[in-house]
Design a protein around this nucleic acid. Structure first.
Length: 413
DNA sequence: CATCCACCGGAAATAGGGGGGC
DNA sequence: GCCCCCCTATTTCCGGTGGATG
């Protein structure tokens, strides 16, 4: 018992003495601070729109849009958290459910996610979607709870499954004594075009646009977060303005700015520095990019990895290869590995996905009599791709045999 | 100017592994 | 047990197509 305590103390001591961070989680994207700088106006408007639901009146549905990292989700979460605290202390029966449509992925799972936050027990598969909706509705009916559903990143849902679910949700109110509120959040304004006009008008009774943060606004945000996250005096003067400026030049993405700051801190920590300087920030940019592509490659399904390998093999030195060439190279590799090869159609689809993810670049070029085909090459640095691929043990072996592992590394540096 | 290459990409069907309600 | 549902990955089928060539 005593030993444990001593060791813990020792650890605490060690950690707090050396650490640059006081509370790193304050820089996480899902951290909700007590104060959101430069969003007072939006918060006030949202509160005015949402509050009626807590009182059990018919309020208005809201549609929020703005680019990533402009504080949409943070504002909504912030308000709902505060509101449910208030409701509790005032004895109102209020609750809310939050679904990130991109994460949840399908209509069914969005509904299950919303429903289970209300306390319903729903199987992750097996039921008909309409059945899940029915259960949610009858729960709301019986419990007479004032409820708000938040659908974050709805544009993804629309793209994958259309607007059926949104339509159903908007009509729920017709047979509910206590109205249901729907807050939809989208990164992409053009998703409106894919909506039935009736659904759109119901969802966007109120609309709020979140503008990108300016560089100086980002500076304020970083400033207030860094005082929570970092120990006193570990940030060099220029660090915060630099992070802010870099993120502002993207599109005022606060999330990016915060992760830049976090990674810069980690870089400094790893280097054993006591102060985070601008150099760390520059290293952080590179680290973030590299980590992202490696992570992307690591989590690719096997077939996509093999295709990527085929591209690498048939387009050495950054030359472009046609999809036909790559396909035959792909078939060679699969037979070599003893893996079932996919049909061309599916292959082509996976190529498109790789292109969207930014790992490869392709262009459809017509060569007249010699056909129309896509010219493809790897877009990210080759050694990065090789590194990512070779983390797959199965592929590592194959790459060794194809002697792909040593080639690019030498020729690139 | 029609032809024709070497693919492109949409739609629908199938597989097959998860799991209901009754 | 039976019939139905959901989801992802894939196959099957097939109607295009830009533009150098004959």
């Amino acid at each position: 018992m005593n030993n444990e305590k001593n060791i813990e103390e020792y650890m605490d001591n060690l950690l707090s003495r050396k650490s640059i961070f006081k509370n790193k989680s304050a820089l996480n994207p899902d951290f909700i601070p007590d104060y959101l700088p430069h969003r007072d106006k939006e918060i006030r408007e949202l509160v005015e729109i949402i509050t009626p639901f807590v009182l059990g009146n018919k309020g208005s549905n809201v549609l929020l849009y703005g680019k990533t990292g402009t504080g949409k989700t943070a504002c909504v979460r912030f308000i709902l958290k505060a509101l449910s605290n208030k409701a509790k202390s005032h004895g109102f029966n209020f609750s809310f459910s939050f679904s990130n449509c991109r994460m949840d992925g399908s209509e069914y799972r969005v509904l299950v996610s919303l429903g289970s936050q209300l306390g319903l027990k729903l199987p992750f598969t097996g039921l008909a979607t309409a059945e899940v909706l029915q259960r949610i509705v009858s729960f709301l009916q019986k419990a007479e709870v004032r409820c708000i559903f938040v659908l974050d990143e709805v544009d993804c849902l629309i793209k994958s499954s259309g607007d059926d679910l949104l339509y159903e949700l908007t009509r729920i109110n017709e047979n509910l004594k206590v109205p249901l509120g729907i807050i939809t959040i989208s990164n992409d304004i053009s998703f409106k075009e894919h909506l039935d006009p009736r659904v759109l008008s119901s969802l966007s009774e109120e609309e709020l646009i979140f503008k990108p943060y300016t560089s100086s606004q980002l500076t304020d945000i970083l400033q207030s977060r860094s005082s929570l996250a970092f120990n006193e005096g570990v940030l060099d003067k220029g660090v915060i303005p630099l992070c802010a400026a870099l993120a502002a030049s993207e599109h005022g993405d606060a999330r990016r700015a915060l992760s830049l700051l976090r990674v810069a801190g980690e870089v400094a920590e790893r280097k054993g520095l006591h102060i985070v300087d601008e150099e760390c920030v520059r290293t952080a940019i590179k680290r973030i990019e590299e980590d992202q592509s490696i992570e992307l490659i690591r989590t690719l399904p096997l077939q996509s990895k093999i295709i990527l390998l085929a591209i690498l093999a048939s387009s050495k030195d950054g030359t472009k290869a046609t999809s036909g060439e790559i396909f035959s190279s792909y078939k060679n590799i699969t037979s070599f590995m003893g893996v079932e090869a996919l049909t061309y159609r599916r292959f082509s689809m996976l190529i498109n996905e790789l292109e969207i993810s930014g790992l490869i670049e392709g262009k459809v070029i017509s060569q007249g009599r010699y056909g129309r085909t896509r010219f493809i090459r790897v877009a990210s640095p080759q050694d990065l791709v090789t590194r990512g691929l070779s983390e797959d043990l199965l592929l590592h072996d194959i790459m060794d045999k194809l002697s792909l592992l040593n080639l690019p590394l030498e020729s690139n540096l």
